[in-house]
């Protein structure tokens, strides 16, 4: 806790990242209070209007207020980005850590299984999962987790392979610590950095992947405001930057904010850098 406080004080980027992410999360939760217009109802009288005092981010092809849509959009996009990354990160970390730590045949079988999932094109696999389970928001998130955890598992395993050779691990085993304790107390904390960094950069990816799936009819359907889908709609309007620009900016700030947090956490967790605080 003390270290975290120090981090806030010394690492401005981390603080900025936290502020950005919190702002988006709060905006998404309080959307009905903040948004000046209904994100769904069309008003063709004001379609394709540039940003103005009345419509801060302008309006889209249907005359819907883009500011309101971006605020509401966070509800879907953040959910998709953050939840899938957290879940697949947790699953991948434990899976990879166990595989790497136990080694031998267990490692072989576990990793071949994860490679089997990786070998499918992820979009197609997500579509199959949706087709089998039925198409709704929850299943789409589930499908995204299924296709993304193996990447984390592979990364975790490769780090664990080198970490477990360290002397403090050997020492801990020599002192009679049970395997589970060694794994949780020694190995995972010392290997998690790269997973954390990847997870934060992955949030933007997942938001975009979710919007692709949405477009294919899995997950949210139009006219649901969803950042990725808003960007793809706006791409048809070359000279009306605000239609794709503002939701794009939302994805961008969210991804950058998450990256800053990731960098800060790395500084906090990396034993080599820890003494700086």
């Amino acid at each position: 806790m003390h270290a975290l406080k120090k981090l806030f004080r010394s690492n401005y980027l981390f603080t900025l990242g936290v502020i950005i992410c919190l702002a988006w999360i709060i905006a998404a939760i309080l959307a009905p209070v903040i948004a000046p217009y209904d994100p769904i109802v069309q008003d063709l009288g004001v379609r394709l209007k540039a940003p103005s005092g009345e419509h801060w981010f302008g309006t889209d092809n249907f005359g819907r207020d883009i500011f309101s849509r971006v605020i509401y959009g966070g509800r879907y996009s953040l959910l998709a980005g953050v939840v899938t990354v957290i879940l697949s990160g947790i699953i991948g970390t434990f899976y990879g850590a166990v595989a790497g730590y136990v080694g031998g045949q267990v490692d072989n079988v576990m990793m071949r299984f994860s490679e089997m999932i990786l070998s499918f094109p992820s979009l197609v696999l997500a579509m199959i999962i949706n087709a089998v389970l039925g198409s709704n928001l929850f299943n789409t998130l589930f499908a995204l987790v299924i296709v993304s955890w193996p990447t984390y598992a592979r990364l975790m395993r490769s780090v664990v392979l080198s970490v477990k050779e360290n002397e403090y691990v050997t020492a801990s085993i020599a002192l009679g610590a049970p395997k589970m304790r060694v794994l949780i107390k020694e190995i995972i904390p010392n290997s998690i950095n790269s997973v954390l960094i990847m997870a934060t950069t992955d949030i933007g990816n997942k938001i975009l992947m979710f919007s692709t799936l949405s477009f294919l009819g899995l997950g949210s359907a139009p006219p649901t405001p969803e950042w990725g889908m808003m960007v793809s709609d706006g791409a048809d309007y070359f000279n009306k930057f605000w239609i794709a620009g503002f939701p794009g900016l939302a994805i961008f700030t969210m991804a950058v904010g998450a990256n800053f947090i990731g960098d800060g956490l790395r500084d906090l967790l990396d034993p080599k850098l820890r003494k700086e605080f």
């Binding site: 109802v41 069309q42 092809n61 249907f62 579509m127 087709a131 949405s214 477009f215 294919l216 009819g217 359907a221 139009p222 006219p223 709609d233």
Partner: peptide, 27 residues
């Protein structure tokens, strides 16, 4: 999908609530 959104918006005025389901041509 734009036309479908327009239809949905129009029909909402008479109480028909359309739930847009997108499905790719190939799938």
């Amino acid at each position: 999908t734009d036309l479908a959104q327009k239809v949905k918006d129009d029909l909402a005025l008479i109480g028909i609530n359309c739930n847009i389901v997108t499905q790719s041509w190939a799938a």
